[in-house]
């Protein structure tokens, strides 16, 4: 427990540093971003918008940096991330609309890819040298093909030609977003093809990582011991896999952390309303409040994922517990 609190403290400090950098970056850039924005908006600027821009950067332009910083933190704690210039609505509202789509699609795909890949890798590692090894080049092929190409080809074949999957968007235009069965079913149906494409393109890493660790573990004495002890085959494989999975868990935490930032190419190819798409538009339009808001969410997500991964690691590998305590 003390260990968890200690970790939590470390993460709090990291989060604070990240937030501060997020606050400082626009201020360190050459020129004045606020003037640039107002300039870009030309005659369309309303006093409310000027105020919103100022607020998003910490209030009045003429107050000191420290005052701006305090205001920024205060606004952030209250969930106020400013107002997007291009979309003219609060950043928090925009994010609430985009993040669930990205987390749903990329998150589920990443977890699926991890599970399928890791299980396949464990079996391939165990049956090393068997015919199953032929799976590996196939999997690496899909990872080696540039994603935009793979995605486009899949969309063309399975969407346009064969009509197996609906194309473009996150849900049918006949339903509106709500927690109804019709909508959820539609969202799942629209998510299938992007999900398959993501799993296909990312699974090789999981397979190879797990297979290699598994091969290393199978050569370990404690696996030999579990054979010598006459444990059932499933127990023996589990003994090896249980130890082999640790590096994959670390990689999963990194992958999960990056889920929120979205898979830009996936969202572009499938016209999916996620964070990646949003970030691209925000950068193109120099929409600073939105960029800052997205960065903040990504940072916090990465930190949260790392924290969870740490906890999982503590639970799975007793050796990390003593090391962290000493």
């Amino acid at each position: 427990m003390r260990l968890i609190l200690h970790r939590l403290g470390l993460y709090a400090i990291t989060a604070w540093v990240a937030i501060t950098v997020n606050f400082l970056l626009p201020r360190l850039m050459p020129g004045n971003p606020i003037q640039t924005m107002i300039g870009k908006l030309q005659s369309n600027v309303t006093p409310a918008e000027v105020r919103s821009i100022q607020l998003s950067f910490g209030g009045s332009l003429h107050s000191g940096l420290v005052h701006q910083y305090v205001t920024y933190l205060d606004q952030m704690v209250h969930g106020n991330l400013g107002v997007s210039i291009t979309l003219s609505s609060p950043v928090s509202t925009i994010l609430r609309g985009a993040v669930p789509w990205t987390v749903g699609l990329i998150g589920i795909s990443t977890v699926l890819s991890f599970f399928i890949g890791t299980i396949a890798g464990a079996l391939l590692g165990w049956t090393r040298g068997s015919r199953l090894d032929a799976l590996i080049p196939t999997a690496t092929f899909f990872q080696a093909v540039p994603y935009f190409f793979l995605g486009t080809v899949m969309l063309m074949i399975f969407g346009s030609e064969l009509h197996w999957f609906p194309q473009l968007g996150a849900y049918s235009l006949n339903v509106s977003p709500s927690w109804t069965w019709a909508f959820v079913a539609s969202a799942l149906r629209y998510g299938e093809l992007p999900m398959i494409s993501i799993v296909l393109s990312s699974i090789a890493g999981w397979i190879l990582g797990m297979r290699n660790m598994m091969i290393t573990m199978v050569a370990e004495d404690f696996v030999l011991m579990s054979v010598a002890m006459g444990l059932p085959r499933r127990r023996v494989i589990w003994t090896a896999a249980r130890n082999a999975i640790l590096p994959s868990i670390a990689n999963l935490s990194l992958a999960i952390g990056l889920v929120v930032s979205g898979a830009l190419l996936v969202e572009l190819v499938f016209n999916y309303p996620g964070v990646g798409d949003l970030l691209l538009n925000a950068v193109e339009n120099e929409d600073y409040p939105l960029i800052q808001g997205i960065f903040l969410v990504i940072t916090l997500a990465v930190l949260a994922a790392n924290f969870i991964a740490d906890m999982v690691y503590f639970a799975l590998d007793p050796r990390t517990r003593t090391e962290a305590q000493s």
Partner: peptide, 10 residues
């Protein structure tokens, strides 16, 4: 020979 390696570490 090596009990450290022969005992499952986790």
């Amino acid at each position: 020979q090596s009990a450290l390696n022969a005992l499952n570490p986790v």
